[in-house]
């Protein structure tokens, strides 16, 4: 069994946030109604089987000066998509990398990356570095000039 009801309760609570208190897992234990030791054991197991990709803090990068972000969209020959997607994903400056459908004649860039940096110039330099690394020269750098919404996906349980 990969997860039972207690696991689902723990996942549901912790995806919303673990309190930044002195004994954070004690707080979760109280909410779930099991011991802190069991919470930790279950979280470790869920992490080891990959249902939890990461447990840690998320940082508002703008607050530490990482204020530039761009979607860099690439036109990659279909047979190279897997290779180029994997390669670009290996760069820490790339936080997201997706393959997407194209709409012939309307939108033909099929690989999307999100690149963050301290300045526009640094993001542009990263895009150039990525282009040289993957050998794809047809790409668009679309800087963000306004953030209207940013929330996280809540998985239903």
């Amino acid at each position: 069994m990969d997860k039972d009801e207690i696991d689902q309760t723990i996942l549901s609570i912790t995806q919303d946030g673990i309190p930044l208190e002195k004994e954070p897992f004690e707080e979760i234990a109280k909410q779930v109604g099991i011991s802190r030791e069991e919470i930790i054991t279950r979280l470790k197991r869920l992490r080891s089987i990959g249902i939890i990709k990461r447990l840690g803090v998320s940082v508002n990068q703008r607050k530490v000066g990482i204020v530039a972000n761009a979607v860099v969209a690439w036109k990659v020959p279909e047979e190279q998509l897997e290779h180029v997607g994997t390669l670009l994903s290996s760069y820490t400056e790339v936080t997201h990398c997706y393959g997407r459908v194209t709409i012939p004649g309307k939108w033909e860039h099929n690989l999307f990356t999100v690149v963050h940096g301290y300045s526009r110039e640094s993001v542009e330099a990263v895009a150039k570095k990525l282009s040289e690394a993957c050998g794809v020269s047809d790409y668009l750098v679309m800087f963000s000039n306004g953030q209207y919404k940013r929330t996280s996906v809540k998985h239903p349980f």
Partner: peptide, 27 residues
């Protein structure tokens, strides 16, 4: 309007570098 469904998820990992070189090496 364009609607571009996801065909491949290669990476979602929103983490940054705070030590050594910066997130983009820019600093």
């Amino acid at each position: 309007t364009i609607d571009l469904p996801t065909t491949h998820v290669f990476k979602i990992d929103v983490r940054f570098k705070f030590t050594d070189s910066g997130a983009d090496g820019g600093e």
